[in-house]
């Protein structure tokens, strides 16, 4: 194997590139791009299995959302394995995971949301004054605009009108949700 692949000099750059492609959904980071930018001396035949190995390691770490003890144990085992990694490489991977763990996890969580998400919410309360035929003078209404959408798709804007009764009904439902969340989050 080429000496460059044993070293750790360009590994941090490689891991960043892999994370862009694998977790952050930025296409265009190709095998050839990574090779020519980071390991120009290495042939594609040698680079390909190396890249696959690093990608596999990164995916395993992210998939298990390893904490730092798990990570140390996992990397130590790899350094002892035939065709594994060197301890310099283990150090680079460990450093990389420490600084990217939160962001990668967030990105994986977003990928697991298949319905549309709530992108933004704005509201206004109007003192609605109605006309000569209506008894409802100065009934306040809340107008709420919800922006819902999914990454890579255009948002839909949903504009809702609520009177006081409706607001309180929704509020009651939301308090039920909150109660369920507290129950769920309670340590068993």
């Amino acid at each position: 194997m080429a000496a460059e692949l044993e070293g750790s000099k360009c590994l941090s750059g490689l891991l960043s590139g892999l994370a862009q492609d694998t977790f952050y959904g930025h296409p265009g980071i190709t095998e050839e791009l990574l090779r020519s930018q980071l390991y120009p001396e290495v042939s594609l035949e040698e680079f390909r299995p190396f890249l696959a190995k690093m990608k596999g390691i990164l995916k395993s770490i992210a998939s298990a959302d390893m904490d730092f003890n798990q990570l140390e144990a996992f990397l130590t085992a790899l350094t002892k394995k035939q065709g594994g990694i060197t301890s310099e490489q283990a150090a680079v991977i460990s450093k990389f995971w420490k600084s990217h763990k939160t962001k990668i996890r967030e990105s994986l969580m977003n990928q697991s949301c298949w319905d549309r998400g709530l992108r933004s919410l704005s509201w206004r309360v109007d003192g609605k004054s109605q006309s000569r035929h209506s008894a409802q003078i100065h009934t306040p209404v809340a107008i709420m605009e919800l922006e819902i959408g999914k990454s890579g798709q255009e948002s839909e804007f949903l504009c809702l009108e609520f009177d006081e009764v409706k607001v309180n009904q929704v509020l009651k439902k939301l308090s039920e949700v909150e109660e369920s969340i507290s129950t769920l989050m309670q340590p068993a």
Binding site: D115, G117, V125, V141, E164, L171
Partner: peptide, 27 residues
């Protein structure tokens, strides 16, 4: 119309409704 919220997003959603309820009561 359906959508999903993370827990922090839900908490913000809930807080906004509480604010609306407080204001609408005083208008």
């Amino acid at each position: 119309k359906s959508f999903e919220m993370t827990i922090p997003q839900f908490q913000n959603f809930y807080r906004q409704f509480k604010e609306i309820a407080a204001i609408i009561e005083t208008v």
